[in-house]
């Protein structure tokens, strides 16, 4: 049996670029010079090279003025790439147990907008400790995610995404 390294050098896709969100994957002590990310603003999926002029120290937040992006086929790629390295956000969805519903054991919930990636683990812990009681309507507000706003400066909330 061979080592994993060997067999997937050519074929393992995607995560060969250590990412600051994944300390385990950031083995190198040298400042990061470039990072490759895939633009998902449209289905073309351009591979973007994000360059950090002067290098990016481990765990440091990048300075917007030192970032240069190449590989994008259109301007949206630049916007996506900058956002993705400066302040990555994601939608969060999960389900929470519900008591007293005639048809559901769990109710699906969602954030009302993308939240900072760094806040996801805590939010999930908080949500997975909850227990709800029927009846619940779709869109019922369960909590407000601290320190996260949408572009209109409204706080992001967690709401139910189906009745129960």
């Amino acid at each position: 049996m061979n080592s994993q390294q060997n067999s997937n050098q050519n074929n393992k896709q995607g995560n060969n670029n250590p990412d600051s969100r994944n300390p385990a994957a950031t083995a190198t002590e040298n400042p990061e010079q470039t990072r490759e990310i895939i633009c998902i603003a449209c289905p073309v999926g351009c591979h973007l090279q994000v360059m950090f002029r002067g290098g990016l120290a481990k765990d440091a937040s990048p300075d917007p003025d030192t970032i240069a992006i190449t590989g994008n086929r259109c301007p949206r790629g630049e916007i996506y790439g900058r956002e993705e390295v400066l302040a990555p956000t994601r939608m969060v969805t999960t389900t929470i147990p519900v008591a007293g519903s005639s048809f559901a054991r769990r109710v699906p919930v969602r954030t009302t907008g993308p939240i900072p990636v760094a806040r996801i683990p805590d939010l999930l812990t908080q949500l997975h400790a909850m227990e709800l009681h029927a009846p619940l309507a779709r869109g019922q507000v369960l909590l407000t995610v601290e320190g996260s706003e949408n572009s209109d400066n409204e706080a992001i909330q967690v709401v139910t995404s189906h009745r129960a």
């Binding site: 997937n8 995607g14 990412d19 994944n22 385990a24 994601r90």
Partner: peptide, 8 residues
């Protein structure tokens, strides 16, 4: 990619 899960 967000979770460094290898795709073989």
């Amino acid at each position: 990619n967000d979770f460094s899960i290898p795709l073989y």
